[in-house]
Design a protein around this nucleic acid. Structure first.
Lengths: 361, 361
DNA sequence: CCGCAATATGACACCGATGTCATGACACCG
DNA sequence: CGGTGTCATGACATCGGTGTCATATTGCGG
């Protein structure tokens, strides 16, 4: 591959002059510039980042580690989609910064992380991002002080900058909207309590109930490990069956995620209950393939992965630039998508709710 | 960040000796080695790839361009999953080769590709991979001759090495399995004919029919643009309705992909037809969130994205190593997943089919 | 016509690792 | 005891850009 020396020779100038043309620093004569540009074109010259990087002590590279399929403890076979959207968001944020992304995946083996970090350090990355597959606590090996790190969709106990979904608020927003639609008995089929989301979202659920002056009924809240191989569907069935037999049964089922909602559709159908007329169903994630394809389309709230990625990228760029920024995690919320799986019981409330939100914007 | 000179000074040796310890070439005295290793540990030394790369004229970097969300013409809102699995497969294949992956996404703007390629070339990538979101023809700008390129999930007219799903064979394998299960009237709701998969898979469908001596009935084959915003579901409904009213209606509906199958579940339910007892449904993709969560679980065939990625990585490594390998695209097939959405009408055939396949392995 | 500033260009060193070659210290053999 | 080979180590140049400083050329006011 052609070097700056080749270009210089062909153009009959010194390498330094070519460098000046490349970087548009220092003055260059009109005719000289043209000769150099012609030479570059003829040779198909592309400047070597390695050499440049050595001199400048700046790589323009950011390292990205994804956690991907950690064998067990997966919240669902949703596998990878969060990662993907987060990475796309990161790319969008970095796009205009002139940095390039290097990626590596642990492939489920966390013990590989130190090695991946070393590889990135050897490329002198200017910053590191760790992306987790679902909201969780992680523990990463320490980095040299001068390499900033941002965690996406996860956090650690050292207070490393992190960008997280605002699970509590997202759930509260969804339940608020259900209440605004006139629902009063709202069941919540939460995710397993050993997952962060399974712990945070019930708070949001109760926040919304409390705001509206509705009582919290423990019989309407259940953590359901719906994703277990064999018995998952059965557990889900039993839970729903129990709730529907209550004296005052729920008018809507709030599911831990869209995938669970999809299973709930099947179960309700088997039970002979029509959605949304006999019972409403709401999801969580706005996993579009599910939410938009289900019939009726699923009301849900968006887990804003792309936005999380974008904020992560921005936050890292700030750290690299040395801008201090506040500490603590950045929480990201997203919109409620109101589709046909929940009936509006009181249209007038919904209008009021909309107006209220618009005023708050 | 510490350099090899810092380490050398601290250990009281020359940089070259440190280099020898690092690379385990040339002989080094026992005591010297220990002193050097101690110095490296104390300084937290990580060797600079940039410097190494300059000397060695080898980067150990592979560039990966993903096509992602090209606005229109998407086969579905499946958005990104193929990309993701392909990239994971690539990473698995490259993992042991000591190369690092750089990624960039066009973000739907194809005109950015030349710029992305230049960025990669400036990092002196040893090879390039282009990953498309769905099986399609692409056209990339020419590369310098010495940088190998492999296309994943796409192909071009220049005969660039490519790794593709064997759509025809996958569809044939699935239909064969349906026939083995005793089905004789098999409807095929194909994808749009302007998509490669929409053209190739009908051939596979007919291959399987022909092998079994079954007639091809044009009334049982329809291309359905099920994904259109408003009318998609209606078109799908009409098509199914028409087929079910035939004098000799199909006993199973083969869908263009799992997402379409999911919609078909909803439509059949609305029509009052029970799956699988009154009619079978088969998908395509083995999009697990759908196929495993639907009730009943969906019989489908796997579009082997991870394998496509792995083969792509392997093929690129071979090209980089200068091993010639055959030209032409690499076609990758995958297994049929038999779940509960299609009834076995003739169990004895299925056994025979299994034995046959095992003999062929 | 001289002096000084602005413009245009080049020589050279340096970034950090490593290939090449040289050198010094031993050990072993005849 | 000299010759030869092996081991251990270092000096030096090199990879491709670019920062620093020097030099050559031109223009313009006085």
């Amino acid at each position: 591959m052609a070097t700056i020396y080749d270009v210089a020779r062909l153009a009959g100038v010194s390498p330094k002059t070519v460098s000046r043309v490349l970087n548009a620093d220092g003055p260059v004569g009109e005719k000289t510039r043209e000769a150099v540009e012609k030479a570059m074109r003829e040779l198909g010259y592309v400047r070597s980042n390695a050499a440049r990087m050595m001199r400048a002590q700046k790589s323009g590279i950011i390292g990205l580690i994804t956690g991907a399929i950690s064998t067990r403890n997966q919240p669902s076979i949703q596998q990878g989609l969060p990662d993907l959207f987060i990475v796309q968001g990161i790319q969008r944020a970095l796009e205009s910064s002139g940095t390039t992304l290097m990626i590596a995946d642990t492939a489920g083996r966390n013990e590989r992380v130190p090695h991946l970090i070393d590889t990135f350090l050897s490329h002198r990355v200017e910053g590191l991002i760790y992306v987790a597959e679902y909201h969780q606590e992680v523990s990463l090996p320490a980095l040299p002080d001068d390499t900033p790190l941002v965690l996406a969709n996860c956090f650690d106990s050292r207070g490393t900058p992190a960008v997280l979904p605002d699970d509590r608020r997202l759930q509260a927003d969804l339940v608020r909207r259900l209440i605004a639609a006139g629902h009063r008995r709202i069941a919540f089929l939460a995710l397993r309590p050993d997952m962060v989301a399974g712990r945070l979202r019930p708070f949001g659920y109760r926040d919304a109930l409390a705001e509206a002056g509705l009582p919290f009924d423990p019989l309407l809240l259940a953590h359901v490990d719906f994703d277990q191989a064999e018995i998952g569907p059965q557990v889900l069935w039993d839970t729903i069956d129990r709730m529907l037999r209550l004296d005052s049964p729920p008018t809507v089922l709030c599911c831990g995620n869209d995938q669970m909602a999809m299973m709930v559709y099947g179960i309700l159908r088997s039970m002979g209950r029509k959605v949304p007329d006999e019972i409403g169903v709401a999801g969580f994630d706005n996993y579009r393939v599910i939410a938009e394809t289900l019939y009726p389309p699923l009301t849900t709230v968006e887990l804003p992965y792309t936005a999380i990625g974008a904020r992560t990228g921005e936050r890292l760029l700030q750290l690299i630039a040395g801008e201090s920024r506040e500490a603590g995690p950045t929480l990201v919320a997203g919109p409620v998508y109101w589709r046909a799986s929940v009936n509006e019981r009181r249209p007038e409330n919904v209008l009021a709710f909309r107006n209220l939100r618009e005023e708050n914007e």
